[in-house]
Structures are given as structure tokens and as C-alpha cells.
Design a protein around this nucleic acid. Structure first.
Lengths: 257, 257
DNA sequence: TTCATTCTCTCATTCTGTGAGAGAAATTCC
DNA sequence: GGAATTTCTCTCACAGAATGAGAGAATGAA
């Protein structure tokens, strides 16, 4: 929630950047906040905040709904209708995923986490035995490589909420269903930077997954290599997979927050 | 679609403003546009556009989905979830609508147009015979004061599309159902600045409506005074009604586009 | 591979944003 | 209804930031 524009600063766009941080604060910090409070939080002089907020209101991005109350305006609503983040992500990922699938001769997925479920946005089959999944399909996170890679990089609160939500059904005899075991697994994944699925979802289906760091700051998706075989996916495939994730991360940008 | 930041400029926020215009161009102009094309349209030097776009991408507002293709990013998606324009509008309008209802001793509505239907966002009863409507309810636009006031201020294309969509059912014997007649009515409403509903929706229900100009540039809603009586609403109520609309317009901001 | 497009970076000039505080306009309280 | 309080708007001189042309690096296409 707190935007520390700590990392790499873009040259010559400080004003825009501060404005966006302010807008984010207002929208994320709930609809109730007087200019003084908002200015306090950034921090930023009141008169500067006022000048910027005036621009946002004039542009229809904010709407003054009452004294000390600002909310999204009409323009924001218009923009919303043009934005489908999942679609954008899928479009950005597709060429990279397809290329990787061809390169390694296996099936590659790109997916996101949504309310404890993994949604596959992109699937590309580049060889080997077919894998039975489809784009837009959802599945439980705890038993898939992508799901575990994503869960491991969530905040501690989200992780605990997820682990408390249970129950975790064993889909194969290798599925991890114990919350404590999952918690340790998450730590391990976080440390090593990749997650594996050794036939925990389907017998004979192995998978290797890594998170996608948006602008190197935040995990917003994951990519995985899946294949039907009789042994885990070779870790030699980790490098091309990580490379794909890194490129995707760079492409989609999205820092802050 | 074309943002002419023509009118009153805010002092000392040109950079922010240009940035927002750029962002609007990218989002409204479809996902496909190279920096050069975008810069051409503003107009703005490419290197400046690039600097601003880099900020948006870093902040997660835009996402580069391919060469010459930008779309809304994660941050935009986050903001979306915090924004409910109808709710904001209702919240901003409620105190004004309530005050007007008390002042004139009648029922006052505030509504918006949505796919050819009017949605009542706020209703306040300030005296007189009760009017049978409720907030969030929808009704056909052609036979209500608010609906006609809003339709009259739509673009010609939207009006024609609406008139062509028909059919228009007569709810009372005074309902205007002929497209040509409606078209002339719209011109008249546009010219005089207000719309009337003389028992066209329900027998004995009269109504006077005026549009709400967001920041004096664009009609985004309408307010109306309704009452059960045996004659049209007195035009002496036009002034307080217009005043209410003007104040609401100022409050919600929203220029451009 | 090579070519074409799209994007990124640098730097001197000048125009722009900055921020304190006073004043205006609301909202709330009495 | 009126007064106190909060919230918002405006002005101005200085400093520092944005600007924009063009060369160069990535990237994607053929």
C-alpha cells in the first residue's frame, strides 16, 4: 500500500511520478482523506497536493464526493472499460511462452493467482506428450507448480489466510496437503527461486515453475514448463525458464505499491 | 476522444496534465500505437512521450504488450477495483438532491444514462404526494424527464442509434413515441436547457429535468423535480434546479475527453 | 543473416514546478 | 440563524526540473 518510489528513478519525470503516487494514495487509502491528511502521508506540502488534486479532478480522474472525500471519477471509469489486465498480460506473454515451448520441446504455461486459484492465461505446446489443460481454466494453487511459485511470493498475511482456508485435497498420492508442510515448502521455493510439481496434480505430470517479477519488484504471474514423463523436469531447463520470466517481467513493467 | 486541454489551465501542473492527456490517448486510442504515432497525435516530441510512457510502465499503469502496443497495467486494474463511478456520483449528489427536495417540497431525482436506460442513483422526497420510484431502478429514457434531458445532450450518433433502436411504447396517452418527434424534442431541450415530462410516464406525474455538466464541458447526469399534480411543474422551480445541477457539476469535476 | 522499426539515453537551455502563507469558501456546531 | 472550524484556493520569487533534438541500442521482421 505504501509506494516507496525508492528504486531506479526515471530522469525528468519527477512531477508526473509524484502525481501518480498521490493519486495512488488517494485511491488505495480509501475514499476518506482530506488534502491535509493525504499530503501528510506522502509527505508533500498541502498546496502542492492541492494543485495536483485539482488537475485530477479537472481531468475527471478524481471526483470530490464530499468534504475530505475523493473517489474515482468518470475518466477513470472510462479507462477501466479499456483495461483488461489479464488480457494484456496474456498478450504480452504469448510470444515469449510460445518461443520457450518450442525451444524446450514441452508445454509452457503462464498463470496468475486469483482468490487462491490459479488461472492459466497462456498455454503453448512445443512438443512431447500433450498436457491436459486449457487457457482460462482454473485449478487449485497448492498442487500446481505455478500456484506454489505464486503463493510462496505472497505476503505472509495472504499466505496464512490461504493456509487457514483449506482443506487441501490430495489429487495424487504425492500431493502436499499439510499446511505446515506447505508453509515450509513456500520458504524453500522463496529461497531457491523456483517451484516444482512432481506429479502432485496428475500422475506422471511433472512441472517446473518460476515467478514473474514485474519490474523486478513484485510477483504478478508465473511461468512453468510441464511435461509427462517418469521423472521430474530437469533443472537444466531452469535457465531458459527464468530468462522467459525475466523478459516478461521487463515487458509488463509495473513497479511501485 | 480527442482531449483538447483547451479550457482553463491549472497553474504549475502542465507536466502532469500532459502526462494524463498522453495516457488518455493511449488508452482511448486502442491498444495499438507506437510511441511515434502517439506523439504525433498529441502532438509531442517522441522523446518526451517516451519519458512519460516509461513512467507509466514503471508505475504499472501501462503495460507494453508488444511492439507499438500498450495497454492498461496491474496498477490500473487495482485502481479499478476501488472505483465505482455511480457510487461516487450518488454520494456527491445526495446532499444537494436532499437539500433541493426540502427546499421545493417535492421529489428530486438524480440519474444517469446507461445503454438507453435511465438509472436513478439518488432520490429524495421533500414533500407533496409520494412518487413511486426507487434508487437503482431503471426505466426507459424516452419517457422520463431525466432520460430526455440526457438523450438530448448525447452525440448525434448516439441519438440516432437510440432512435433507431426503438420501439417506443406509450406508457400513457401523452407519451411521445414517434422517433421524428423525439428528435425534434431533443433539439428543443438542447436549446432551452431543460426537459419536461408531462405525465408521459405515469398519469398525473409531472417532472422537470436539467442536465449536469461535469466541469461545464460534458453532460454526465441529470437532476429532476417530480410531483403528482394536475399541471406541469412550474418553471419557477427551474432556477433552484439549475443551481443544484451547477453545484453538482462543479463538485464532480471531470473535464477533457 | 540484414534491414527496418521501435525504443532509450544524453545534455545544455529555459521554462516550470515548488511551497509558505494569506485569504476564500465550504461545512459543522451551537 | 450565525459563528467557529475545517477544507480548499490562490499568489509569487526562486531553484531546480522538464524539455526536445538527435545519436545509438534493442528489438522484431524478412
Amino acid at each position: 500500500m505504501n509506494s516507496e518510489s525508492s528504486s531506479a528513478e526515471v530522469q525528468g519525470a519527477a512531477a508526473l511520478e509524484r502525481g501518480l503516487v498521490l493519486l495512488d494514495q488517494i485511491l488505495e487509502g480509501g475514499p476518506t482523506a482530506s488534502l491535509a491528511q493525504i499530503a501528510d502521508r506522502i509527505p508533500m506540502p498541502i498546496s502542492t497536493a492541492q494543485r495536483l488534486v485539482a488537475v485530477f479532478v479537472r481531468q475527471g480522474l478524481l471526483c470530490r464526493v464530499g468534504p475530505g472525500r475523493y473517489a474515482g471519477g468518470v475518466r477513470m471509469a472510462q479507462w477501466n472499460s479499456h483495461c483488461d489486465w489479464h488480457e494484456s498480460l496474456a498478450e504480452a506473454a504469448r510470444p515469449l511462452v510460445t518461443a520457450l515451448a518450442r525451444a524446450v520441446g514441452a508445454t509452457v504455461h503462464c498463470g496468475v493467482l486469483e482468490a487462491g486459484m490459479v488461472t492459466y492465461l497462456v498455454k503453448a505446446h512445443g512438443g512431447g506428450q500433450p498436457v491436459l489443460t486449457s487457457e482460462q481454466s482454473q485449478l487449485e494453487a497448492y498442487c500446481s507448480g505455478i500456484g506454489k511459485a505464486l503463493l510462496a511470493h505472497q505476503s505472509a498475511e495472504l499466505q496464512e489466510a490461504y493456509l487457514a482456508a483449506g482443506p487441501f485435497v490430495a489429487l495424487t498420492d504425492r500431493t502436499t496437503t499439510d499446511p505446515d508442510q506447505l508453509r515450509r515448502l513456500f520458504e524453500q521455493i522463496l529461497a531457491q527461486g523456483y517451484a516444482v510439481d512432481d506429479a502432485e496434480l496428475q500422475p506422471g505430470l511433472y512441472c517446473l515453475a518460476v515467478p514473474v517479477w514485474a519490474a523486478g519488484e513484485r510477483v504478478v504471474a508465473a511461468v512453468s514448463i510441464s511435461m509427462r514423463s517418469d521423472a521430474p523436469v530437469s533443472l537444466t531447463l531452469l535457465d531458459p525458464l527464468k530468462d522467459c520470466a525475466r523478459r516478461l517481467g521487463r515487458r509488463i513493467g509495473a513497479g511501485g505499491a
